[in-house]
Design a protein around this nucleic acid. Structure first.
Lengths: 170, 170
DNA sequence: TATTGTTATACTCTATAACTATA
DNA sequence: TATAGTTATAGAGTATAACAATA
């Protein structure tokens, strides 16, 4: 690692806690030091993603959309006629895991399928008026969440963070 | 959202693909547009985290350490005597999910448990010499991975990214 | 022969309730 | 009464293999 901060775990021996004078065989940990893990991109990205998703789950429960549901609906909304395979490639999903998800969205009346205009194997996914209306509300809620989530970031910092994250996975 | 870029999905109608002149009832999607999702912190953080973890899994298979195993071993390494509860709080894990993990690490001879010096309910977790040696190698491998992973980032950008991510979850 | 969508299935990860031993 | 560690279990998420229909 390039810049590991000095280890700073504060430990309290049992001698400090116990009132007698016997020397402790083992020490107890007072404050847990995670400074090493905090130097790793993977650890920080994962912790940040889970924190954000936690808030997302609560806020989107109202719409019955989990993170992947939201992503799929959003891509269909902005790309009407997209196929399952295209969705999988764009969102890094596996085809078998998308099947039930799409069936669920269709059963809820949020999307409908139409034959692909040129490929008889493929099926185009389109938002229904209900699905489009739901997504408009959901995307507004997501925008609100972004504001809350980046309360400790300036607009410039938020933009920088998005750009740097995209350098990692794109 | 603050800065949603203009939607730029490139679509090819069936007319463009088919050689006859009938107007298509539905359009096909040529290039999937994910620009909206790319404006959301959660989407980008999740995609970046999964990309990093993918490489981590491959590189750490040699040591038999998955991401959480690595985190747990690393915290024990830098905080000998830490308890399960402290680990859970520091890494945002649930106690029941840590039990099997710790038992596995102990069965592999990487850690050993000692009674807590002052709290009879708690158990201190300590690295064995074998565990400490393994983690030295694993942390070196993690450092190598960081270099690879941030090949498209300058040192300053990498530092900025770590700081911004910590503003999200800390 | 390759690709789209699908089924079945297994494996991992995460979450909840409840118990015991000790503080 | 509250906390540390544990057990059992349920649910969500993710993975592979194999098949039918179409290119």
């Amino acid at each position: 690692m390039a810049n590991a901060p000095p280890s700073s775990a504060k430990r309290a021996t049992s001698r400090a806690a116990a009132s007698h004078s016997s020397l402790p065989l083992v020490s107890a940990v007072d404050q847990v030091d995670t400074s090493y893990l905090q130097t790793l991109l993977g650890y920080n990205a994962r912790r940040a993603a889970l924190t954000i998703i936690e808030g997302f789950l609560e806020r989107m429960a109202e719409f019955g959309l989990r993170p992947v549901d939201f992503s799929v609906m959003s891509v269909i909304q902005h790309n009407p006629g997209v196929t399952s395979r295209q969705l999988c490639a764009a969102l890094n999903l596996l085809p078998p895991n998308l099947v039930g998800l799409v069936q669920s969205l269709e059963a809820r009346g949020l999307i409908h399928r139409q034959p692909h205009p040129t490929d008889g194997r493929a099926v185009g996914l389109h938002p229904t008026p209900e699905g489009a209306a739901l997504m408009q509300k959901a995307e507004q809620a997501a925008a609100d969440l972004e504001v809350d989530r980046s309360a400790r970031l300036t607009a410039a910092q938020r933009k920088t963070l998005l750009e740097l994250l995209q350098k990692i996975y794109l």
